[in-house]
Design a binder for these strands. Structure first.
Lengths: 239, 239
DNA sequence: GAGTGGTCTAGACCACTCG
DNA sequence: GAGTGGTCTAGACCACTCG
């Protein structure tokens, strides 16, 4: 653990515990330098972390203020779609089960070729999973992954967490995801598996997930019942 | 303009122009030090900017790779909702018009009190605007702003860009926004103004926008026709 | 003018990856 | 062992804000 991460953690704890209340100033950088016995550059790196999280904001010539965003008081876990639902649910104490509806290998159609940057001869897994929370239909996930990047996929894995397998077994590292969110009318699949009525909207979150080297390794469309899911996030302006 | 910003701009240009093709390595940090005649810390700050933008990724002991994300080749303008639609449209060469349906002052209800952190005695503007693109209904925006933070709002301003006024005239600085995206059934308003059919889903993007000092100054719900709008963004993992 | 945060330097040590 | 990026130091100068 780097020093600046340590310091950021300490400061974050103090903010969340009310030690540095919202609206007050953080101690001056020179004070933090003496408290933690580090150079000012290191203090600044720590403060930058908190700025990225939306906890504080600095003004030249004035100081660094503790903000009062929703995220200051609420759970800090930015819901990351690619962490997988398993993670999300485990932390919410709700029981998630997965039902594998389709699992096969095929050559990608044009859309999948484009999203995953494959040729038509590079096969992909095609996966359709229904995810249930407390036995209620929650999300229908259409997933495509290139065989060569994610070898050894099994139905058993799909029934638990794909991401656990990808990270722990394959050692794949994720750099980020490109997401598109839209509203849609229910498809026949949605009506069947999500028990959506014809007039029930669907919230679709599609994403392309990238490895650290920039190669896309997952393209998925998550179709959510409109009444059980929204998507929230904090969008901080660059410094 | 800081040195590291200059360097980041130069490197970004080289990446987009194909000078540093996707998949290749960026020059080593020591090489960049000699080229730009700066210290390595400054080079690193520049590279960090590009990492945040999803253009490159570094690996210890290896080097910094140029990635091949959608954003590497496409327009880099991350659509920021709080920039206002006016900006977005001006850059897409599509004509945006605004129709003010409601504009008044009222005491906030409980929801608005909570979102904007106001007491029930602090009045807010209530604004309902229909925004049309090429004369087609596009978004219906319900907006609330506290009077004391945004004084002097006029109907004339609403017909153009609220954000231009807030930034240029009032000098307000924005730190970020908290957004929630969901799908919904059309309301009576949506049916009337967006010409939504009863079975047409609505994509709702609601946001609370914060000033630099952490005070919320706008709460809005943008109701979009499902067939003309989606919401895309790049979610990069923290370093 | 005094104090603040933002940037920058010229070094240093380290963990990591590769052959 | 040689090379890489990540972190850190102890200084320095600056633009900005405030009284």
């Amino acid at each position: 653990m780097a020093k600046y991460e340590d310091i950021a953690n300490t400061l974050r704890t103090r903010i969340k515990s009310g030690d540095y209340p919202a609206g007050s100033f953080l101690p001056k950088q020179t004070e933090l330098v003496t408290e933690f016995n580090v150079s000012r550059m290191t203090v600044q790196k720590a403060v930058e972390v908190l700025m990225m999280e939306g906890l504080v904001a600095s003004k030249k010539g004035v100081g660094t203020t503790v903000l009062d965003h929703p995220f200051t008081t609420r759970d800090t876990s930015t819901l990351s779609e690619y962490e997988g639902l398993s993670w999300e649910m485990a932390h919410g104490n709700r029981q998630l089960t997965s039902q594998v509806i389709e699992f096969g290998v095929e050559f990608p159609d044009e859309t999948v070729q484009e999203k995953l940057r494959l040729t038509e001869e590079e096969p992909v897994y095609k996966i359709l999973r229904l995810r249930l929370v407390e036995d209620q239909p929650f999300v229908l996930e259409h997933t495509y992954m290139p065989l060569n990047l994610v070898p050894g996929m099994k139905k058993e894995i799909l029934e638990h967490s794909i991401y656990h397998y990808i990270r722990q077994q394959l050692g794949l590292r994720i750099s980020g995801a490109y997401r598109t969110i839209r509203a849609d009318k229910p498809s026949d699949y949605d009506k069947l598996y999500l028990q959506a009525q014809p007039e029930d909207p669907i919230l679709e979150i599609s994403q392309i997930v990238y490895q650290q080297d920039g190669k896309p390794f997952e393209y998925s469309r998550s179709r959510n019942r409109y009444d059980v899911r929204d998507y929230s996030f904090l969008d901080m302006k660059g410094s």
